[in-house]
Design a protein around this nucleic acid. Structure first.
Lengths: 150, 150
DNA sequence: TGACCCATGTCAGTATTCTGACATACCTTT
DNA sequence: AAAGGTATGTCAGAATACTGACATGGGTCA
């Protein structure tokens, strides 16, 4: 006889998805007026902190496939937010950089996203936030380790 | 002069997205062999716990639009996993219920998802998990409250 | 009763992401 | 040097979710 289902009222997995969904919605809400999607913003923010990231690296950082990021990068390049060299300096990877326009566009978005993150954390103490960081990091590590062989 | 960007290495928002992404990937991995997507599974799990949920209620519970859930429900109904009355008993909402086939299909998926959730939490004590629940709940509530007027 | 508002189900079109596939470049090993 | 393995960029097609729109049912209030 099969076990009962997963109790969604107490499941941390479900709650994690709920929190992520709420964050996504809040971010979309503030980024929409700026004509920016979350992936779009993530890409610019990654490039601001680590100039020269390749398409594949940006994809991993934004949690999408490199194919999806490639589509986005081509649009961003066409519209003058980022630049890539015509030929790869080494290997196949094309290092991407923000243009002045890209940096300007990112400034407003960063402010908007910062306000959302502040709101998200307003009920948590500094100690709480440290604990939350530790636990989420542990979850990510466990999930990436793959199924336990035993 | 604009402020600097958001430090992704220490941002709880980014980490939340990372954890959610890792969970999504792990769930997709175990559900794929069963021919099931996450939304598909979520729908069945919701119906197992709260029989008679309407399309819109299922959509909210699975964090998708009611249009997306409607497409899924039509497929599930066509394939015999759920049933809906031909006419709404009251209002326009059609209460949905699992069939025996739907319940059987859910059993395997629940076991698979349970193993993923266990793995995710294996580094956290019971107290940790309670704290994580409290913090995530706080984040969801704060995000849904909308921007602080002040 | 009638006007209004809100929630629901549904259709259609659009957008975004994903999977599959291929060629290329680097690295390691033999 | 040659072969195998891994990573990358890119194209094409499929799957999935979303936005917009419309009609209907139920409730509230004047």
């Amino acid at each position: 006889m099969g076990q009962d289902g997963i109790d969604l009222e107490t499941s941390l997995g479900y709650l994690l998805k709920e929190a992520s969904s709420a964050l996504r919605l809040a971010m979309e809400e503030v980024l929409r007026p700026l004509g920016m999607t979350i992936t779009h913003y993530s890409c610019l923010e990654l490039l601001a902190q680590r100039p020269g990231l390749s398409n594949s690296e940006l994809a991993r950082g934004a949690f999408v496939t490199r194919q999806s990021m490639n589509v986005l990068l081509q649009a961003l390049e066409r519209d003058g937010y980022v630049t890539r060299p015509a030929a790869p300096p080494v290997g196949k990877a094309l290092p991407t950089r923000l243009t002045a326009r890209g940096r300007r566009s990112l400034e407003k978005a960063t402010a908007a996203v910062r306000s959302v993150e502040s709101r998200m954390l307003e009920g948590l103490s500094a100690g709480d936030q440290q604990e939350a960081f530790r636990m989420l990091t542990s979850m990510v590590r466990s999930l990436r380790e793959g199924p336990t062989p035993g």
